[in-house]
Write a protein that binds this DNA or RNA. Structure first.
Length: 113
RNA sequence: AGCUCGUUCAAUGUAGCCGCUGGCCUAAAAAAUGGCGAGAGGAAAGUCCGGGCAGCACAGGAUACGAUAGUUGCUAACGGCAACCGCGUGUAAGCGUAGGAAAAGUGCCACAGAAACUAAACCGCCCCUGUUUCGGCAGGAGUAAGGGUGAAAAGAGUGAGGUAAGAGCUCACAGAUUCCGCUGGUGACAGCGGGGUGGGGUAAACUCUAUCGGCUGCAAGGAGACCUAGAUACCGUGAUCCGCGGAUGGUCGUUCACCGCUUGACUUCGUGAGCAAUCGCGAAGCUAGAUAGAUGGCUACAGCUCUGCUUGCAGAGUACAGAACCCGGCUUACUAGAGCGAGCGCCUC
């Protein structure tokens, strides 16, 4: 889990990111990101009920992705807002190393790392 | 042993590394750092009932609307629970049951059938008249026993009498229903005795009777900050009317942090009352509090289940499911078990 500092706290910031950010689409996870005017990053994860009906399953996906992001934190200095959109319920089951690779590749493609 | 019924409990564990959200300490205050300890459920779910709490007036009257429906109790309350009664069902332990009123009124009873409710007569049965090729045929009258249709057919079963043939038409017995009395029970009701009655069903159709319910919900509401509009017009009581209240510094709308926010119809243990639900008394304890929403991620080992075979290894699985103001229930989802109590049974060992 990430600390409160690295999370969003209002709808305004999320809305701004959606409207002004760039989008990278992938079959499993998509990334929307935009540079912010703070001195750190903020992250959010979106898991739709359409992807997975169970609240427990959605919680598990969210926690695993947060954990994968946390592993990348030391490599990131650029102040950006990132929203990860989950496209498949496989994220709850896949190998954790594979999940880390997906997140890592997304961040490289967005030139955040 | 087997089959079955009821009920209670538990909800894989241990270690390591890295995190998250509160609390306390470091500390006189804010931040950082470090330390200590806490951190999802039996259903947290569905949001179907009931309450607390909050606001609207100290929530008052009438109507409308809605809910409930055996009795007695329990409870803050309930549509919940317990015990009991009636009915149904099962060999039984048990299980199920909206279980008030059809003589206040209105409606409905598909299809089939002659007829679906102040009866009627399709096939029959019986009598009379006419006719006859002596098999019947036509007309009239009687009947409700038999057949047929239907979920239901006039609603009283058996026997006897009775008759042209029949029929509660009459009688005896049995049964149903209702009223009265006695006995038992707080009561639903049960048992016994006596009188009356014999023209359906449906109220989960309207309706009637009894009882209950004011409305809105923590995005309530409080307090703070900011902005906007109006000037005695109205506004509020969130179904309507009455009635009541407010009325110049108060009202409306929007956003952000704080309070509400967890000490409570609380938990555990002991003890007493009660068949039980539950209640009394005593002692000890504090047990999540997030807000784009913490309670976790990964690794290893062990446990349990299944499958495979090399028989001690490999692979797979390890339910349902995530607090959001708080409680009491109901309903639904679900795993492999364990404990306790009870019934049937004597086929096989």
């Amino acid at each position: 889990m990430l600390s409160k500092k690295y999370r969003f706290h209002s709808r305004g910031g999320v809305r701004y990111t959606y409207q002004h950010g760039k989008t990278i689409r992938d079959s499993k996870i998509s990334l929307v990101f935009a540079v912010n005017n703070r001195n750190h990053q903020r992250y959010a994860i979106v898991v739709s009920k359409k992807i997975l009906k169970s609240a427990v399953g959605r919680n598990r996906i969210r926690r695993r992705v947060y954990e994968a992001i946390r592993a990348e934190l030391p490599n990131i200095q650029k102040p950006v807002d990132c929203i990860f959109i989950i496209n498949t319920k496989e994220i709850a089951q896949i190998d954790f190393k594979e999940l880390r690779t997906i997140i890592h590749d997304l961040l490289i493609e967005a030139k955040i790392i």
